[in-house]
Design a protein around this nucleic acid. Sequence first.
DNA 1: CAGAATCCATTTTGATACTG
DNA 2: CAGTATCAAAATGGATTCTG
Lengths: 106, 106
Amino acid sequence: MDYKDFENCGLKKALDMLSGKWKPMILYFLFYQGEFRFNDLWRSIPRISKKVLMEHLQEMVGNDLVIRREVNGFPSEVRYALSRKGKALGPVLSALDEFGNTSNLN
Amino acid sequence: MDYKDFENCGLKKALDMLSGKWKPMILYFLFYQGEFRFNDLWRSIPRISKKVLMEHLQEMVGNDLVIRREVNGFPSEVRYALSRKGKALGPVLSALDEFGNTSNLN
DNA sequence: CAGAATCCATTTTGATACTG
DNA sequence: CAGTATCAAAATGGATTCTG
């Protein structure tokens, strides 16, 4: 693995898409819980600020990991769910979860 | 997934162990290239500062992901390699790499 | 060579109040 | 309800210098 690899490898691209304190948690949550409205999602994730949740969601929508679906009405309703691409990360996150759960036993 | 899960789940533990700009790259590198001396590793990873590489390695040694092996002599020689636990992350990182390489094609 | 110590710049996150 | 704006606080990373 040389210089070029570090800059252009898939791992870097993937990590860039996942950069953000809560992104993997959000993805994992959506993977298991399905579609969620913004505020419900916000309440489901302790400690996260609305601002950061919003930023993370927008970036993930931009990376095609998450789909934003707007339901017309008042009060406004917006739902977020994983895209096909986002769902592809499910197994990876699951593997990480498993790793974190069992690695202390080694 | 409720409050408790977010704070104590394996995913969070795993992410904590991987927190640090270059840690996944370092692990991936060691996974494929095997044992490395500190300075060789440093030269192999463009842009990283010695300080940060040192910090990351020490944290990963503390998390039993990496093994530090000291070879007596002068100039001093220290070699870093993945532990069994660290090697367990190889497939996960590989999956992320694959994801990053192909996700733009979807 | 491996590593520690400073100091500083930048990034990231969080709290809060506000809008249509 | 979803989303924005502002500002402060914290975490992280980088450059440089120094040592046994």
